[in-house]
Design a protein around this nucleic acid. Structure first.
Lengths: 154, 154
DNA sequence: ACAATTCCGAGTGAAGTGCTCGGAAATCCC
DNA sequence: GGGATTTCCGAGCACTTCACTCGGAATTGT
Protein backbone atom coordinates (compact mmCIF):
# COMPACT_ATOMS: atom_id res chain seq x y z
CA UNK A 1 0.00 0.00 0.00
CA UNK A 2 1.01 3.54 0.69
CA UNK A 3 0.89 5.00 -2.77
CA UNK A 4 1.17 8.55 -1.51
CA UNK A 5 3.39 11.10 -3.17
CA UNK A 6 6.45 12.44 -1.41
CA UNK A 7 6.14 15.69 -3.31
CA UNK A 8 3.37 17.92 -1.97
CA UNK A 9 0.21 18.13 -4.05
CA UNK A 10 -2.83 20.36 -3.69
CA UNK A 11 -6.27 18.93 -2.86
CA UNK A 12 -4.83 15.51 -2.30
CA UNK A 13 -7.30 13.07 -0.80
CA UNK A 14 -5.82 10.82 1.86
CA UNK A 15 -5.97 7.04 1.93
CA UNK A 16 -9.07 7.32 4.09
CA UNK A 17 -10.95 8.76 1.15
CA UNK A 18 -9.24 6.60 -1.44
CA UNK A 19 -9.56 3.24 0.31
CA UNK A 20 -13.00 4.10 1.62
CA UNK A 21 -14.25 4.87 -1.87
CA UNK A 22 -12.86 1.59 -3.17
CA UNK A 23 -14.59 -0.18 -0.30
CA UNK A 24 -17.92 1.45 -1.03
CA UNK A 25 -17.76 0.75 -4.75
CA UNK A 26 -16.90 -2.85 -3.96
CA UNK A 27 -19.93 -3.12 -1.71
CA UNK A 28 -22.08 -1.51 -4.39
CA UNK A 29 -20.84 -4.07 -6.90
CA UNK A 30 -22.02 -6.82 -4.54
CA UNK A 31 -25.29 -5.13 -3.67
CA UNK A 32 -28.06 -7.65 -3.10
CA UNK A 33 -25.67 -10.49 -2.36
CA UNK A 34 -25.97 -10.35 1.42
CA UNK A 35 -23.24 -9.43 3.90
CA UNK A 36 -19.72 -8.94 2.56
CA UNK A 37 -16.83 -9.45 4.99
CA UNK A 38 -14.00 -6.95 5.18
CA UNK A 39 -11.65 -9.84 4.65
CA UNK A 40 -13.10 -10.40 1.20
CA UNK A 41 -12.97 -6.71 0.31
CA UNK A 42 -9.40 -6.38 1.55
CA UNK A 43 -8.30 -9.27 -0.63
CA UNK A 44 -10.13 -8.13 -3.75
CA UNK A 45 -8.96 -4.54 -3.47
CA UNK A 46 -5.54 -5.39 -2.02
CA UNK A 47 -5.97 -3.14 1.02
CA UNK A 48 -4.88 -3.56 4.67
CA UNK A 49 -7.81 -5.19 6.45
CA UNK A 50 -7.12 -3.77 9.93
CA UNK A 51 -7.07 -0.29 8.49
CA UNK A 52 -10.32 -0.84 6.60
CA UNK A 53 -11.94 -1.74 9.90
CA UNK A 54 -11.20 1.74 11.11
CA UNK A 55 -12.56 3.40 8.00
CA UNK A 56 -15.74 1.36 7.88
CA UNK A 57 -16.48 2.50 11.43
CA UNK A 58 -16.76 6.06 10.13
CA UNK A 59 -18.99 4.93 7.29
CA UNK A 60 -21.25 3.08 9.69
CA UNK A 61 -21.54 6.07 12.02
CA UNK A 62 -22.49 8.16 9.01
CA UNK A 63 -25.27 5.67 8.22
CA UNK A 64 -23.83 4.60 4.87
CA UNK A 65 -23.21 0.94 5.69
CA UNK A 66 -24.58 -1.47 8.26
CA UNK A 67 -22.62 -4.32 9.77
CA UNK A 68 -23.63 -7.76 10.90
CA UNK A 69 -21.51 -9.60 13.44
CA UNK A 70 -20.54 -13.24 13.70
CA UNK A 71 -19.69 -15.97 11.25
CA UNK A 72 -21.18 -15.25 7.86
CA UNK A 73 -21.50 -11.62 8.87
CA UNK A 74 -20.09 -8.58 7.13
CA UNK A 75 -21.19 -5.26 5.71
CA UNK A 76 -23.91 -4.04 3.38
CA UNK A 77 -24.71 -0.63 1.95
CA UNK A 78 -27.33 0.89 4.21
CA UNK A 79 -29.41 2.00 1.20
CA UNK A 80 -29.60 1.66 -2.55
CA UNK A 81 -26.26 2.37 -4.33
CA UNK A 82 -28.06 4.95 -6.46
CA UNK A 83 -28.87 6.87 -3.27
CA UNK A 84 -25.29 7.14 -2.04
CA UNK A 85 -23.03 9.77 -3.58
CA UNK A 86 -19.26 10.14 -3.67
CA UNK A 87 -19.84 13.27 -1.61
CA UNK A 88 -21.46 11.23 1.15
CA UNK A 89 -18.44 8.95 1.28
CA UNK A 90 -15.83 11.70 1.28
CA UNK A 91 -17.66 13.68 3.95
CA UNK A 92 -17.97 10.60 6.17
CA UNK A 93 -14.27 9.85 5.92
CA UNK A 94 -12.54 13.18 5.61
CA UNK A 95 -15.01 15.61 7.13
CA UNK A 96 -17.13 18.37 5.60
CA UNK A 97 -16.01 19.90 2.33
CA UNK A 98 -14.59 23.28 3.25
CA UNK A 99 -11.46 24.75 1.73
CA UNK A 100 -11.54 27.42 4.44
CA UNK A 101 -13.41 27.71 7.72
CA UNK A 102 -15.22 30.73 6.37
CA UNK A 103 -16.80 28.49 3.72
CA UNK A 104 -18.32 25.88 6.04
CA UNK A 105 -21.04 23.80 4.41
CA UNK A 106 -24.51 24.80 5.46
CA UNK A 107 -23.27 27.64 7.63
CA UNK A 108 -23.38 30.58 5.25
CA UNK A 109 -22.22 33.23 7.67
CA UNK A 110 -19.32 31.75 9.57
CA UNK A 111 -17.31 34.51 8.02
CA UNK A 112 -13.81 35.68 8.77
CA UNK A 113 -14.08 37.59 12.03
CA UNK A 114 -11.68 40.44 11.59
CA UNK A 115 -12.06 41.23 7.91
CA UNK A 116 -15.60 41.53 6.67
CA UNK A 117 -14.87 41.81 2.98
CA UNK A 118 -12.00 39.41 2.47
CA UNK A 119 -11.11 39.49 -1.22
CA UNK A 120 -10.01 35.89 -1.31
CA UNK A 121 -13.22 34.55 0.14
CA UNK A 122 -14.77 34.38 -3.34
CA UNK A 123 -12.12 31.82 -4.30
CA UNK A 124 -12.90 29.41 -1.49
CA UNK A 125 -16.65 29.78 -1.77
CA UNK A 126 -16.56 29.01 -5.49
CA UNK A 127 -14.25 26.10 -4.84
CA UNK A 128 -16.44 24.62 -2.13
CA UNK A 129 -19.58 24.66 -4.21
CA UNK A 130 -17.78 23.33 -7.28
CA UNK A 131 -16.24 20.41 -5.44
CA UNK A 132 -19.46 19.57 -3.61
CA UNK A 133 -21.46 19.64 -6.83
CA UNK A 134 -19.01 17.35 -8.59
CA UNK A 135 -18.94 14.79 -5.80
CA UNK A 136 -22.66 14.90 -5.05
CA UNK A 137 -23.33 14.23 -8.72
CA UNK A 138 -21.78 10.77 -8.73
CA UNK A 139 -23.48 7.75 -7.17
CA UNK A 140 -22.08 4.42 -6.07
CA UNK A 141 -24.38 2.75 -8.58
CA UNK A 142 -22.79 4.60 -11.48
CA UNK A 143 -19.28 3.90 -10.30
CA UNK A 144 -19.94 0.22 -9.74
CA UNK A 145 -21.53 -0.07 -13.15
CA UNK A 146 -18.79 1.66 -15.14
CA UNK A 147 -16.19 -0.49 -13.48
CA UNK A 148 -17.78 -3.82 -14.24
CA UNK A 149 -18.52 -2.72 -17.81
CA UNK A 150 -14.86 -1.90 -18.43
CA UNK A 151 -13.93 -5.16 -16.76
CA UNK A 152 -16.24 -7.12 -19.04
CA UNK A 153 -14.09 -6.74 -22.13
CA UNK A 154 -10.68 -7.37 -20.61
CA UNK B 1 -2.98 33.67 13.29
CA UNK B 2 -3.71 30.04 13.05
CA UNK B 3 -7.36 30.07 12.11
CA UNK B 4 -7.33 26.41 11.21
CA UNK B 5 -10.04 24.04 12.32
CA UNK B 6 -9.35 21.41 14.96
CA UNK B 7 -11.89 19.11 13.36
CA UNK B 8 -10.67 17.51 10.15
CA UNK B 9 -12.11 18.89 6.94
CA UNK B 10 -11.89 17.65 3.37
CA UNK B 11 -10.10 19.65 0.69
CA UNK B 12 -8.84 22.12 3.22
CA UNK B 13 -6.26 24.51 1.85
CA UNK B 14 -3.38 25.19 4.22
CA UNK B 15 -2.19 28.58 5.38
CA UNK B 16 0.33 28.54 2.54
CA UNK B 17 -2.52 28.80 0.07
CA UNK B 18 -4.63 31.07 2.19
CA UNK B 19 -1.96 33.59 3.19
CA UNK B 20 -0.34 33.42 -0.23
CA UNK B 21 -3.63 34.27 -1.92
CA UNK B 22 -4.16 37.22 0.41
CA UNK B 23 -0.63 38.37 -0.37
CA UNK B 24 -1.19 38.15 -4.13
CA UNK B 25 -4.51 39.97 -4.02
CA UNK B 26 -2.90 42.67 -1.92
CA UNK B 27 -0.13 43.07 -4.49
CA UNK B 28 -2.74 43.16 -7.26
CA UNK B 29 -4.59 45.91 -5.43
CA UNK B 30 -1.37 47.95 -5.39
CA UNK B 31 -0.42 47.13 -8.96
CA UNK B 32 1.34 50.02 -10.64
CA UNK B 33 2.40 51.61 -7.34
CA UNK B 34 5.97 50.32 -7.38
CA UNK B 35 7.53 47.86 -4.94
CA UNK B 36 5.49 46.78 -1.94
CA UNK B 37 7.38 45.57 1.13
CA UNK B 38 6.35 42.42 2.94
CA UNK B 39 6.23 44.48 6.10
CA UNK B 40 3.41 46.56 4.66
CA UNK B 41 1.50 43.52 3.44
CA UNK B 42 1.93 41.74 6.75
CA UNK B 43 0.50 44.71 8.61
CA UNK B 44 -2.43 45.29 6.26
CA UNK B 45 -3.39 41.62 6.13
CA UNK B 46 -2.41 40.87 9.73
CA UNK B 47 -0.13 37.97 8.80
CA UNK B 48 3.23 36.82 10.24
CA UNK B 49 5.90 38.57 8.20
CA UNK B 50 8.65 35.95 8.61
CA UNK B 51 6.29 33.29 7.34
CA UNK B 52 5.26 35.39 4.35
CA UNK B 53 8.92 35.58 3.40
CA UNK B 54 8.92 31.84 3.00
CA UNK B 55 5.77 31.82 0.92
CA UNK B 56 6.82 34.63 -1.36
CA UNK B 57 9.96 32.66 -2.18
CA UNK B 58 7.77 29.97 -3.77
CA UNK B 59 5.83 32.61 -5.68
CA UNK B 60 9.03 34.14 -6.96
CA UNK B 61 10.42 30.78 -8.08
CA UNK B 62 7.16 30.20 -9.92
CA UNK B 63 7.64 33.51 -11.72
CA UNK B 64 4.55 35.16 -10.27
CA UNK B 65 6.25 37.97 -8.36
CA UNK B 66 9.61 39.69 -8.59
CA UNK B 67 11.50 41.16 -5.66
CA UNK B 68 13.73 44.17 -5.32
CA UNK B 69 16.23 44.34 -2.49
CA UNK B 70 17.35 47.21 -0.33
CA UNK B 71 15.67 50.19 1.23
CA UNK B 72 12.53 51.10 -0.67
CA UNK B 73 12.52 47.62 -2.15
CA UNK B 74 9.73 45.06 -2.04
CA UNK B 75 7.66 42.90 -4.34
CA UNK B 76 5.63 43.41 -7.48
CA UNK B 77 3.47 41.07 -9.50
CA UNK B 78 5.63 39.74 -12.31
CA UNK B 79 2.87 40.35 -14.87
CA UNK B 80 -0.53 41.98 -15.23
CA UNK B 81 -3.02 40.92 -12.51
CA UNK B 82 -5.44 39.85 -15.23
CA UNK B 83 -2.85 37.32 -16.41
CA UNK B 84 -2.43 35.59 -13.04
CA UNK B 85 -5.04 33.07 -11.96
CA UNK B 86 -5.92 31.64 -8.57
CA UNK B 87 -4.78 28.32 -10.02
CA UNK B 88 -1.29 29.72 -10.62
CA UNK B 89 -1.08 30.82 -7.00
CA UNK B 90 -2.35 27.57 -5.51
CA UNK B 91 -0.07 25.47 -7.68
CA UNK B 92 2.96 27.58 -6.76
CA UNK B 93 2.27 27.23 -3.06
CA UNK B 94 0.71 23.82 -2.61
CA UNK B 95 1.89 21.88 -5.64
CA UNK B 96 0.00 20.54 -8.65
CA UNK B 97 -3.72 19.92 -8.36
CA UNK B 98 -4.09 16.15 -8.09
CA UNK B 99 -6.52 14.43 -5.76
CA UNK B 100 -4.76 11.14 -6.52
CA UNK B 101 -1.41 10.33 -8.12
CA UNK B 102 -3.23 8.61 -10.94
CA UNK B 103 -4.79 11.97 -11.87
CA UNK B 104 -1.57 13.98 -12.24
CA UNK B 105 -2.00 17.17 -14.24
CA UNK B 106 -0.67 16.93 -17.75
CA UNK B 107 0.32 13.30 -17.35
CA UNK B 108 -2.77 11.49 -18.64
CA UNK B 109 -1.43 7.97 -18.26
CA UNK B 110 0.23 7.83 -14.87
CA UNK B 111 -2.40 5.27 -14.07
CA UNK B 112 -2.72 2.96 -11.10
CA UNK B 113 -0.17 0.25 -11.67
CA UNK B 114 -1.91 -2.84 -10.41
CA UNK B 115 -5.50 -2.24 -11.37
CA UNK B 116 -6.10 -1.03 -14.89
CA UNK B 117 -9.79 -0.28 -14.59
CA UNK B 118 -10.09 1.20 -11.13
CA UNK B 119 -13.73 2.12 -10.57
CA UNK B 120 -12.96 5.06 -8.36
CA UNK B 121 -10.60 6.71 -10.82
CA UNK B 122 -13.53 8.48 -12.47
CA UNK B 123 -14.18 10.33 -9.22
CA UNK B 124 -10.69 11.76 -8.90
CA UNK B 125 -10.37 12.63 -12.57
CA UNK B 126 -13.64 14.55 -12.52
CA UNK B 127 -12.61 16.27 -9.33
CA UNK B 128 -9.23 17.31 -10.66
CA UNK B 129 -10.62 18.91 -13.80
CA UNK B 130 -13.43 20.60 -11.90
CA UNK B 131 -11.12 22.15 -9.33
CA UNK B 132 -8.57 23.23 -11.93
CA UNK B 133 -11.25 24.84 -14.07
CA UNK B 134 -12.69 26.76 -11.13
CA UNK B 135 -9.32 28.10 -10.00
CA UNK B 136 -7.98 28.84 -13.45
CA UNK B 137 -11.12 30.87 -14.15
CA UNK B 138 -10.40 33.51 -11.52
CA UNK B 139 -7.76 36.20 -11.95
CA UNK B 140 -6.03 38.41 -9.42
CA UNK B 141 -7.46 41.43 -11.21
CA UNK B 142 -11.03 40.25 -10.59
CA UNK B 143 -10.37 39.44 -6.96
CA UNK B 144 -8.65 42.75 -6.26
CA UNK B 145 -11.49 44.62 -7.95
CA UNK B 146 -14.37 42.88 -6.17
CA UNK B 147 -12.71 43.49 -2.86
CA UNK B 148 -12.23 47.20 -3.26
CA UNK B 149 -15.76 47.57 -4.63
CA UNK B 150 -17.25 45.92 -1.56
CA UNK B 151 -15.01 48.06 0.61
CA UNK B 152 -16.25 51.23 -1.05
CA UNK B 153 -19.69 51.18 0.54
CA UNK B 154 -18.74 50.23 4.08
C1' DA C 1 27.88 54.52 7.44
C1' DC C 2 23.41 52.94 8.09
C1' DA C 3 18.85 51.51 7.82
C1' DA C 4 15.70 48.90 5.13
C1' DT C 5 14.76 45.10 2.64
C1' DT C 6 15.08 40.75 0.11
C1' DC C 7 17.22 36.28 0.21
C1' DC C 8 18.51 31.77 2.42
C1' DG C 9 18.74 27.64 5.46
C1' DA C 10 18.03 25.53 9.64
C1' DG C 11 15.16 24.26 13.56
C1' DT C 12 10.91 23.26 16.40
C1' DG C 13 6.51 21.94 18.68
C1' DA C 14 2.09 20.31 17.50
C1' DA C 15 -0.87 17.90 14.63
C1' DG C 16 -2.17 14.63 10.99
C1' DT C 17 -1.22 10.11 8.26
C1' DG C 18 -1.16 5.40 7.82
C1' DC C 19 -1.10 2.06 9.76
C1' DT C 20 -0.76 -2.29 13.72
C1' DC C 21 -2.14 -4.77 17.89
C1' DG C 22 -4.95 -6.80 21.51
C1' DG C 23 -9.12 -7.91 23.00
C1' DA C 24 -14.31 -7.83 23.85
C1' DA C 25 -18.86 -8.97 21.99
C1' DA C 26 -22.01 -11.11 18.80
C1' DT C 27 -23.41 -14.76 15.66
C1' DC C 28 -23.41 -19.08 13.18
C1' DC C 29 -22.42 -24.17 12.67
C1' DC C 30 -21.78 -28.59 14.56
C1' DG D 1 -22.08 -25.61 24.50
C1' DG D 2 -17.45 -25.15 21.97
C1' DG D 3 -15.26 -23.10 18.48
C1' DA D 4 -14.70 -20.48 14.40
C1' DT D 5 -15.84 -16.20 12.28
C1' DT D 6 -16.65 -11.60 12.16
C1' DT D 7 -17.80 -6.98 13.73
C1' DC D 8 -16.74 -3.58 17.25
C1' DC D 9 -13.51 -0.67 20.16
C1' DG D 10 -9.46 1.83 21.91
C1' DA D 11 -4.71 2.42 22.31
C1' DG D 12 -0.24 3.08 20.38
C1' DC D 13 3.54 4.28 17.05
C1' DA D 14 6.72 5.78 13.38
C1' DC D 15 6.74 9.17 10.03
C1' DT D 16 5.54 13.29 7.71
C1' DT D 17 3.55 17.76 7.25
C1' DC D 18 2.17 22.37 9.19
C1' DA D 19 2.93 26.74 10.77
C1' DC D 20 5.77 28.98 12.15
C1' DT D 21 10.55 31.40 14.30
C1' DC D 22 15.43 32.68 14.23
C1' DG D 23 19.90 34.19 12.67
C1' DG D 24 22.40 35.94 9.29
C1' DA D 25 24.17 37.19 4.52
C1' DA D 26 23.56 40.15 0.39
C1' DT D 27 21.73 44.24 -1.80
C1' DT D 28 20.18 48.92 -2.30
C1' DG D 29 18.60 53.90 -1.26
C1' DT D 30 19.87 58.12 1.60
Amino acid sequence: MLGNPTTPTAFHVSTRGEYGMRLMVDLARHWGQGSISLHAVAQREDLPEAYLEQLVASLRKAGLVSGKRGAGGGYTLARDPAQITAGDVVRALEGPIEPQICTAEGDPVVNCIREQNCGTRAVWVKLQSTIAAALDGMTMAELAKSTSRERAHV
